[in-house]
Amino acid sequence: MTQSVPEPKKAEWRKRITLPRMAAAAALVVLVCLSLLIGADTLSPTQLANDPEALELLLASRLPRTLAALLTGSALAIAGLIMQALVRNRFVEPSTAGTAQSAALGILLMTLVFPAASLGVKMIGATALALLGTSVFMATADRLPVTQPHLVPLFGLVYGGVIGAVVTFVGWQTDLLQFIDIWTSGEFSGVVRGRYEFLWGAGIIVVLSWWIADRLTVLSLGREASIGLGLDYAWTLRLGLLVVSVIAALTVSVVGIIPFVGLVVPNIVSRVIGDNLRASIPCTALAGALLVLGCDIVGRLIRYPYEIPVATVMGVVGALLFLKLIRLRPSHA
């Protein structure tokens, strides 16, 4: 009979992550408050209490913008995490593997073919193309030699670059370059009430991914180990692909491509708490939300009252973090 065994050191596990968790929660509160108050028109807490117009500005613009940054950040970080589990390579994410570029191509083609279609319909096209583009990437990555893990992200960069070039070419030929800028360079300045709500879908997908976290952890052990443990490998792989593609389509259509989030956040979280996705998905989502919101606030402050797009800020911050990560983890991929 089973004798009683000590609880698997849960207390210790908790101790390891509770302090960072508290710090993250505090950071979230601070950043949200800053984000609500900072902008071209300054808002102060006293104004909010007395001035109905200030309150309206808060609800129509600042709050949606803040929520959009949080939702986008968590979804992009999760998309990166899942993609790394699917490809079993730590250096891939949707914006460096052609997923985001394919989504942009999808929404561009939908705009050309069905100009009158609603954003929701266009997103279906973006999702379809993101799925296709990512599937081609995964099929090719699978054929690259396992002994050369850095080939996969390099191939992804070239592949994403080629699709991005196709997007630019089509945009050039059809005089849609201005629109393309909206999809390829992520920023939150255009986010107001009524123009970001699709991002809640990305939030729902983040929760869904937590629900299938154990399956994704098994998947990350590889095909043979997955089959040995009775996982429906092909089905789970497709589900993961769908999650990544839908997140890419939603975020690209609403705010545009934001680089590096899906790359640096999962890597940092993995260093701290490991690759058990049941534990790391909530942390990754929260860290991604904090990073994107933080970068958006920085972008609002640097040239105040003008703004720098979040994608630009993230390009700098993300690249620095990424370099740091590479130095910390030289041989593992």
């Binding site: 590889g222 490991g274 058990n276």
Partner: peptide, 15 residues
């Protein structure tokens, strides 16, 4: 149990 069939890196032994 295969040879080299598992790619776990940052999972703990207990996990």
């Amino acid at each position: 149990l295969r040879q080299d069939g598992v790619f776990a890196g940052r999972l703990t032994v207990r996990e």
